[in-house]
Amino acid sequence: MSTRKSRTWRMPAETETQARTWLAWPAQWYPPDADPDEARAAWAAVANAILHHGGQPVTILVTKDEEKQAKIRVPDATLVVIQHDDGWVRDSGPTFVVDATGQRLGAVDWVFNAWGAQPWTRWAWDARVATAIANQVQAEILPSELVTEGGDIHTDGQGTFLVTETVKLDPFRNLGWTRERVEEAFERVFGECKLIWLSRGLTADYGPYGTRGHIDLVATFAGPGRVLVHSQESSDHPDHEVSERVVKLLSDSTDAQGEPLTVTRVPAPKQVRDESGEWLDWSYINHVVCNQAIIACNFGDDHDERANDILRDAYQRDVFPIDARPLFARGGGAHCITQQQPRLPWPAPGSKEQET
């Protein structure tokens, strides 16, 4: 990997102080027979948990048609009317970064094509969401030619990144790209950095509404040198082998400073199949880190409390669970519908942020 320049922009770890959390209110409903009110309630539950327990404000992108619903369900949030296609702002929104002084906010605008041009969605407006959010806070826009999403990027804040091959090298995203070219795209933003490549994501994430392997169901950093990994304990589930390979890979890896990683297993929920018999990708890894708390995905499962205890110990923060089953039924979890913004003066002078 080339190290031809020092890092000028840094992506802070999620454990660092945040200015606020962004969400995008759902603007289309799927599966086609899904209950819109169930989706609205699921997004509202995450937003309200952050507002009431996380210790930071929430800003929600809303379409004009859904503005009233969002205001009723999340009355303490700031609403910004911006046209968008979907509710997965982790993926369509920007990756926030700070400059070397920590005083300037940047926003990486990855190319977004709806998880490899998935046939069930549209993304003409979502492809502009990163720029729209950046303009709201006067962040410097850092365009990238790499097609990817925030759900396939986890960092320790010190130049180490976790990614998956099936996302970054997906021919429907980055046809003909190599690991080296992806690493060069990261270096153009972050300077010298290290990517740790996982071969794939969880099995169900390759289904009809999946992302083809996002990292934020599989592993995340709880701090420098400390990684939490989804551990499927049922040997019948195909993710048992997936998670064992991830544990071994990360246990044998070092971070950008050459230091070994400490791996903590987080058990998968005990339930392994849905009502139709399909494998589940329910994951406690897909939590939201806030300034004062962790907003955890729970599933009405026997392993919920066990996982909550591990998260509480790993982050040394309170854990507040939400029922994530309606989110996962639509293709993701609490982390997928949120995007953290590092703390800088807010609102910035001349900010276009508007209350509704």
Rank of each mutant, 00 (worst) to 15 (best):
R4I: 03
M11L: 09
P12D: 12
P12W: 14
T15H: 01
Q18R: 14
W22F: 05
W22K: 04
W25F: 02
W25R: 00
Q28G: 00
A34S: 14
D37C: 04
A47T: 03
N48M: 05
L51S: 07
G55Q: 14
I60R: 13
V62T: 15
Q69Y: 06
K71S: 12
I72A: 08
I72P: 00
H84V: 03
T95F: 04
D99Q: 06
T101M: 03
T101E: 09
F112H: 09
A114M: 11
T121H: 12
T131W: 08
N135E: 14
Q136M: 01
A139N: 08
I141Y: 05
L142A: 07
L142V: 09
L142Q: 10
P143Q: 06
E145S: 11
G151L: 07
D156I: 03
Q158L: 08
L162S: 15
K168M: 15
K168Y: 14
D170F: 00
F172I: 02
N174G: 14
E184G: 00
A185D: 12
R188Q: 15
C193D: 06
I196S: 14
I196L: 15
H214A: 00
A222C: 13
G223M: 13
P224R: 06
H230V: 07
H230L: 04
E259Q: 10
T264W: 13
A268N: 11
P269A: 01
Q271V: 06
D274Y: 11
E275C: 06
S276N: 11
S276C: 01
S283E: 04
H287Y: 05
Q292P: 00
D302L: 08
D302M: 04
R312I: 01
F320I: 11
D323I: 04
F328N: 09
G331Q: 07
G332V: 10
G333D: 03
C336G: 12
I337D: 04
T338D: 02
T338H: 03
Q341T: 02
